[in-house]
Design a protein around this nucleic acid. Structure first.
Lengths: 138, 138
DNA sequence: TTGCTTGCAAATTTTTTGCAAAAAC
DNA sequence: GTTTTTGCAAAAAATTTGCAAGCAA
């Protein structure tokens, strides 16, 4: 019942992985594609998608959905939340104390649910875009 | 600076709203479309999308993204989390004590962020699909 | 050599857009 | 009567799939 790794260490796979790791902006598949093309000009977008899926399946990267239609990829696989600024669109990792959230998730577990993952998306204005000052913006 | 409501109360708008409210499964636009078609056979999918956007803009329904490519619509607009069963795909509303989460969000606010919304998505196995029993499933 | 992986292109899926006709107010 | 809304179809955006050729092991 053991999963075959079935992963060949191709140049394309390495390049896709490094592109996600080097980016600090939670890149989309297309952004990874254009980044990788600088070193591997013949890589195709389909290959990028394939390798991103492979890396997600291996647990090396994670995929996050931030309220857009496009999936974004994240080299950080430990549990954390994401903040998206509604003005500049920037995405930031947020590390909250998950003990607090864990208390609530335990309530679900006691009801018979098995929790395997959770994603928290926070929207608002970052400090640069006027978060503090325009607190009454609505 | 006041926003014109500019909303005409058409049959299509009412039908779309009722379809979302009557469904307990967080329907996608396409599911709303097929439901509404039973009463309004000539409605188009584009009209369904238009009216869903209108209802979201009015705050009558909310849109949730649950890790799929398709957006889902929710008649519950108060803050709550969503549980998605990885096996049967069922979506359930989860009402956690947001005071706990609020404590952590206050940390962000103190750093200059302005929080306007947050979405929490929880994945796992529901009790029916073996949540409690297969706790060691991986 | 074996068969996973690539590149290319076409197909799919989901959502948006343009526009004339219909409906609401 | 005027302006929004509809229905239809085409376009756009994002991702998946099929397949012959290439490459890793």
């Amino acid at each position: 019942m053991q999963r075959r790794p079935q992963t060949r260490n191709t140049h394309q796979l390495q390049a896709v992985y490094q592109a996600v790791c080097q980016s600090s902006s939670h890149p989309s598949a297309d952004e990874v594609y254009w980044h990788v093309r600088r070193n591997l000009p013949r890589i195709s977008l389909g290959t990028v998608y394939h390798n991103l899926q492979r890396l997600v399946a291996q647990g090396k990267i994670s995929v996050v959905l931030l309220g857009e239609r496009t999936a974004r990829y994240d080299p950080t696989t430990t549990a954390h939340a994401h903040f998206v600024c509604q003005q500049c669109g920037q995405v930031e990792d947020v590390f909250l104390s998950h003990t607090l959230l864990g208390i609530d998730l335990n309530v679900l577990a006691r009801q018979g649910y098995r929790i395997t993952a959770h994603n928290l998306l926070i929207s608002g204005l970052c400090p640069t875009c006027g978060g503090r000052r325009s607190a009454r913006l609505q």
